[in-house]
Amino acid sequence: MEAYVKSTIENGIGAIEFFHPQSNSMPSAQLKNLVEEIEKIGKNDDAKVIILKSGGEKAFCAGASFDELISIQDFETGKTFFSGFANVINAMRKSPKLIIARIHGKAVGGGVGIACAADYTFATENASVKLSELAIGIGPFVIGPVVEKKIGTSAFAQLAINSTEFYSAEWAREKNMFQDMYETTEEMDAEIQILAEKLANSNPEAMRKLKEMFWKGTEDWDKLLSERAEISGKLVLSDFTVNAIHRFKKK
């Protein structure tokens, strides 16, 4: 199957789904399309709440495209590349609609950022998480603010430093990355639908004000995440990181 980002609205519930054949990794073009769909549904009065999910049955999101990462040869290209998930996170936090994330499988790097940027996150027991950036010579700088906001500095540091290990869905639930966790996708989807229907019948203005309260203190994130993308854009050009990426590629 080819990569896609698509959305629907039904009975007040907006649903956005993304897919990429490489474990739902996200090239820059895919991230741009995702931002556009989030903004489009956010502006549509027919949608009162948004469900964000990915296609396939395995990984929820493997993070940014590794194929694109290894092709970076200059700072501007690097900054643009690392701005991809920054734009998604900012679109999610600024959306006037509450966003429910459906995490059905492993989340790596930017996939963890999406899970944390949602206002309410459901997961299955298969949804282990990892921040692998340090292992290839960079760091989770762009997604760091939203992950730290959601799970706290100590848990974020644990993920960022021990970058080669997956942490279980139960660990993520205990750290409040996931609000609810289920054994199967069927159980999870049933509960997502129940909550989404409740929210679709709630006061849109009250939900918008509630979301503003949740995200208070992040008003500078357009600038902050851009600065973080610059850090990664410089690091990815270093000899250390180039060599680390090539070693990773050979595995």
Rank of each mutant, 00 (worst) to 15 (best):
E36G: 04
A15R: 14
G111D: 01
Q73A: 13
E36A: 13
A190D: 10
A160E: 02
A86K: 03
V146H: 00
A91W: 10
S83H: 11
E39R: 14
C116I: 05
V88I: 15
K234Y: 14
T218K: 08
M213G: 14
K175V: 12
D74F: 13
A3M: 10
T80R: 04
L210Q: 07
A229G: 07
F240S: 11
A107G: 06
E230M: 02
F75C: 07
C61F: 01
A86I: 06
Q179I: 07
A200S: 12
P145D: 13
A160L: 06
E76I: 07
K223C: 12
C61H: 00
G42S: 10
L199W: 09
D239G: 05
W215T: 05
E148G: 08
I114L: 12
T153W: 01
G111P: 01
L237P: 00
I114W: 01
K216A: 14
D222S: 10
A47R: 02
R228W: 03
E133D: 13
K251R: 15
S128C: 10
P145W: 12
F81W: 01
I99A: 06
G139V: 00
A29F: 11
S7V: 02
F85M: 14
L224N: 09
A86H: 04
E197W: 07
K53Y: 03
F82N: 06
E17N: 04
A3L: 11
N90R: 12
L52Y: 00
F66A: 05
E10D: 14
S71C: 11
A59T: 09
S95Y: 09
Q73E: 10
A59V: 09
T77R: 14
M213A: 15
K249N: 13
K150E: 04
E36K: 12
S202M: 14
A59G: 05
K53L: 09
G12H: 08
M177P: 05
I100L: 14
E76N: 13
I103G: 01
L34S: 04
V236W: 02
N33R: 11
L31Q: 07
L131S: 03
R102F: 14
G110E: 05
G12Q: 05
T8Q: 12
E227T: 08
S23T: 10
T218I: 02
Q193E: 15
T124E: 04
G105T: 02
N126C: 12
K97F: 12
D74V: 10
I13V: 15
A157T: 13
W221L: 11
Q158L: 13
I245E: 00
N11F: 06
G144D: 10
E205H: 09
E36Y: 07
T8M: 11
L69Y: 03
S28T: 15
G84N: 04
I192V: 15
A206F: 13
E186W: 00
M188P: 00
D119P: 09
C61P: 02
P27I: 10
A47M: 12
E68A: 06
L31F: 07
E174P: 00
Q158E: 15
F75Y: 11
S7Y: 04
G111F: 00
N201A: 08
K79Y: 10
P27T: 11
S83G: 11
